[in-house]
Amino acid sequence: MRLAGCALQDAEPQPRTMPDEIAHEFGYGLYSGRYGNIYTARQMAELLTEIADGDPDPALVWENRGRYRDALRPTVEPSGLGTIDEVLFHRGYHLARLSQMLQQTDVFIFTLGLTEAWQDRPTGRTLPLCPGVAGGKFDAGRHNLHVFTHREVLADLATIYQTLRRFNPAMELILTVSPVPLTATATGNHVMLASTHAKATLRSAVGDFVTATPGTDYIPSYEVITQAGCGGPWFAPNLREVSPKGVERVMDMVLTAHDLLPPDDATHSRPSDDGEDDAHCDEILLESFAQ
């Protein structure tokens, strides 16, 4: 999108002297801020609400062996930070920069990935990762698994949209559904059943929401990547990562549909890196725990 001339927002841009491999380790250059991964609509809704109205909560700082992590983005500091206050200091800055960015944003793009998530009962917050995977400690009395229903996802999308418009009343929302299948589930179901269930719920909720809500749109990357009718499925040999060709097809479609590619370039967009981003997906951590 950058190559197509879009002014992509980045609340916490990669410092120029920071090499890519270090930047990615510390969560720079992946999204429009150092969010870590946001998998569920609820997580995004809660983050936006926190940006608009909240303060960093010390109850959401995890300690492991004297190092501290932001439970809501535990992977952005590979070795954690030195104190709780430092975590809160960084989170406060993260929220302030995101607030500034959202006020200058015309179009917000969000990809929904999962319907199941771990929640922290005392704070009511939805976590990106099960405690214990990348910091923290699982406590069955404190952490519960929640599988979001179609109705809940719809409500969360509405919250996301309403909250975004508090930052910029004209902001538009574009949604996508990640075609990347689940690699693990805590529901007790087979992972393929859980994956189909999650994607069906998300796709259905997004479809209903976009149909009913002006100022929103859907990019059918899920269909392009997964469906034979689009030449797919476009997965790497591990049947999980989207292949560079698949990414290229999606981007061609998006840029062409939005008149962002000159006609001559419509079939010559730049291939993406092969799965580089996927190396930062938290599910890889989960895989390592499953071994």
């Binding site: 002297t17 270090i22 510390f26 500091e77 590979p78 930070l81």
Partner: peptide
């Protein structure tokens, strides 16, 4: 950024 990020860079 964090001290660790600065040091790593």
């Amino acid at each position: 950024g964090s001290q660790a990020a600065a040091l790593a860079t």
